[in-house]
């Protein structure tokens, strides 16, 4: 019996060592692969895109007033079935929520939060919106724009954490694309209703964001799922053709340019939300 125990123990130890040694060989193979990858990444470029809240705040400080019926209809949330539509419209609704918060439309903000919650369930991101008690915080801070802004910033951070921790960093640029198009749409529509030079200046300045956004979406698009979105964004980029990234001169679009941009950004936004009526 003792001999069998000794043999068994010896077998386990030897087998384990052999397995362990085999494991090391695998690791060595992986190390070589990693080295190649890392050497390739010497020219790696990444992008930091601003939060939709910052752009909304920027537009607000330039005179972005509130027009109630221009935000995306909440009822449409049920119609977004593909993951890509859901990601883009998550961005659209986030921008609408930021727009409502900036303009002290607390109940509408809560309504958009609930819409985002429905969409996040479809995207399996439920925990970011349900764990923070955002509705309660929003209700407790009605009329306090500063506090509402901090709540929105917290929400953005939770989303950033979620995407990073779940290896979904690239999803962030798609969500941001939806948010950016919606914020541009809101800015353009408000400017269309009453021309505002400060707002035009801020709309023009978005050229710098669009440039990084397109590169970031292209980088995310390993499976060519966003070819159409990239083409649409590049079409918008044509309106900023006079913009020079290297120049220190102030770039502001003229009336014709801003009108043409408004038309195309409206078409793109309506395409994203699946609205052909507006």
């Amino acid at each position: 019996m003792q001999k069998i125990t000794i043999k068994l123990a010896a077998f386990i130890i030897i087998t384990s060592f052999l397995t362990a040694c085999g494991g090391n060989q695998d690791e060595k193979i992986e190390e070589v692969t990693e080295v190649i990858t890392a050497t390739d990444s010497t020219n790696q470029v990444d992008y930091i895109l601003p939060s939709p809240l910052q752009i909304a705040e920027l537009f607000k400080s330039a005179g972005l007033t509130y027009i109630g019926d221009i935000t995306s209809p909440k009822t449409k949330v049920e119609t977004f079935n593909s993951k890509n539509d859901q990601k883009l419209n998550f961005g659209v609704y986030s921008a609408d929520m930021a727009y409502c918060i900036m303009n002290n439309q607390t109940q509408e903000s809560i309504n958009y939060l609930n819409t985002l919650r429905l969409l996040s369930e479809k995207l399996w991101m439920t925990d970011i919106l349900s764990s923070m008690g955002i509705s309660t915080r929003l209700e407790a801070n009605i009329g306090n724009e500063d506090s509402l802004t901090y709540i929105m910033a917290d929400l953005q951070m939770q989303l950033d954490d979620y995407l990073d921790e779940n290896g979904m960093g690239y999803t962030g640029s798609i969500i941001f694309a939806g948010a950016w198009v919606e914020t541009m749409y809101l800015g353009s529509k408000v400017n269309e209703s009453k021309q505002n030079d400060k707002l035009i200046s801020r709309l023009s300045e978005q050229a710098v964001i669009l440039n990084s956004l397109i590169k970031s979406v292209k980088q995310s698009d390993e499976e060519n799922e966003f070819t159409e979105l990239i083409t649409d964004l590049e079409n918008i980029q044509k309106h900023f053709s006079r913009f020079d990234e290297e120049s220190s001169e102030n770039y502001v679009m003229n009336k014709e340019e801003i009108n043409a941009l408004t038309t195309d950004i409206t078409n793109l936004r309506n395409k994203i939300i699946g609205d052909k009526s507006k």
């Binding site: 890392a38 010497t42 020219n43 470029v45 930091i48 710098v208 964001i209």
Partner: peptide, 11 residues
Amino acid sequence: QVMEIEAPLFK
């Protein structure tokens, strides 16, 4: 290795 991160800023 050199990793570059591009960050757009508003004026």
